[in-house]
C-alpha cells in the first residue's frame, strides 16, 4: 500500500473558459482520510467535479493518477468502476427513476450480475439502518422531495453500499444538523480501513470532530497552499482563513 491511491499533479481546470484550478498538487496514500479545507470559491468543489469527470470541467493541464491508472482518461462510469466515488454537494433529482432501481442498476454495473435480489435487499436494509435512511423512501424517485439532509444521507448510503476504494465527500456536512452529521460520519468511519481512502472537502472544521483526518490540506485561489496534520484544522478553527486573505471563519455559524 505504498503507492498513493490518488496522485494529483499540477492540475489545471477551467469552467466555461475561466481557469479555476491553477496547478493543484495533492496525494492521498491508500487507507488514509484527508481533509481539504478552504474558503468559498477556492476551487474545492471544482476539484471534486473534475476528478469525477463532469463534462463542464475542462482539464487544461496536469495529471491525476488513480490507483496507478490515468483517471482523466477514463469515462465517468469507468472512474466509478475503478473504485472512485463522489458524494455530491447538490445531488440532482431524477424524475421517474426510483431509488431502489437506481441502486440496483448501479451495483450490477459495478459488481456484475452475481448480486441476487435477496442479497441486494439485505445489503440495502443493513446500510439503511446504519445511516438511518427512511425505508419508505425506496419507492420514491431519486432525490425527489428529499430534504437537504436526506439527500446527503442518501449519498453516504450509496457510498456504503458501493464500498468504493476511494471517496471524495464534497461538503457533505453542509446543511446537516448535529445528529445527521454524526450518522453520516458513522457511515464514513464504518468504511475506514486499509482499503478505503477519502478526501473530505469542507469549509468548516465540525465534521472533522467526528472523522479525524490523517492529513489536512488547505486550498486557496485554485492551489493547495498548505498541508499538515490534524492540528492544521484546529489552527483554522481558531484563526479562520484570515492568513490567506479571506475574512471567512472556519467554524460553522450554527456549530
Amino acid at each position: 500500500m505504498d503507492a498513493p491511491i490518488l496522485q494529483i499533479k499540477s492540475l489545471e481546470v477551467a469552467v466555461d473558459g475561466r481557469t479555476i484550478l491553477k496547478g493543484v498538487d495533492l496525494e492521498v496514500p491508500q487507507g488514509e482520510i484527508h481533509a481539504l479545507m478552504g474558503p468559498n470559491g477556492s476551487g474545492k468543489s471544482t476539484l471534486a467535479y473534475a476528478l469525477a469527470g463532469h463534462p463542464r470541467y475542462e482539464i487544461t493541464g496536469g495529471s491525476v493518477i488513480f490507483d496507478g491508472q490515468d483517471l482523466l482518461d477514463m469515462a465517468i462510469d469507468e472512474r466509478a468502476k475503478a473504485g472512485f466515488f463522489l458524494a455530491m454537494q447538490y445531488p440532482v433529482e431524477v424524475p421517474g427513476v426510483s431509488v431502489l432501481n437506481f441502486l440496483r442498476t448501479s451495483l450490477i454495473a459495478l459488481h456484475g450480475e452475481e448480486l441476487s435480489p435477496r442479497e441486494f435487499m439485505k445489503l440495502f436494509q443493513e446500510k439503511s439502518k446504519l445511516l438511518e435512511f427512511d425505508a419508505s423512501f425506496t419507492d420514491r424517485y431519486l432525490n425527489e422531495g428529499f430534504s437537504g439532509g436526506e439527500k446527503k444521507r442518501h449519498e453516504i448510503l450509496q457510498m456504503a453500499m458501493i464500498e468504493p476504494r476511494f471517496a471524495v465527500l464534497d461538503e457533505t456536512d453542509s446543511g446537516l444538523d448535529v445528529d445527521a452529521l454524526k450518522v453520516v460520519s458513522n457511515g464514513v468511519n464504518s468504511l475506514r480501513g486499509p482499503n478505503f481512502g477519502a478526501l473530505i472537502i469542507t469549509h468548516y472544521t465540525r465534521i472533522l470532530q467526528h472523522i479525524t483526518p490523517d492529513v489536512v490540506h488547505v486550498m486557496f485561489e485554485g492551489k493547495v497552499v498548505r498541508t499538515g496534520g490534524p492540528e492544521l484544522a484546529d489552527e483554522l478553527e481558531a484563526g479562520g482563513y484570515a492568513q490567506y486573505g479571506s475574512p471567512e471563519p472556519a467554524v460553522a455559524p450554527s456549530a
Binding site: A75, I76, F85, L86, M88, V92, V94, F102, A109, I162
Partner: peptide, 18 residues
C-alpha cells in the same frame, strides 16, 4: 446523466433509465 454515470452506470443504460 452525470449523476447516474458517476455511480458506474454506463451511458446507454443511464439514458434508458432517464
Amino acid at each position: 446523466l452525470f449523476y447516474l454515470r458517476s455511480r458506474g452506470i454506463p451511458e446507454e443504460t443511464a439514458k434508458r433509465l432517464i
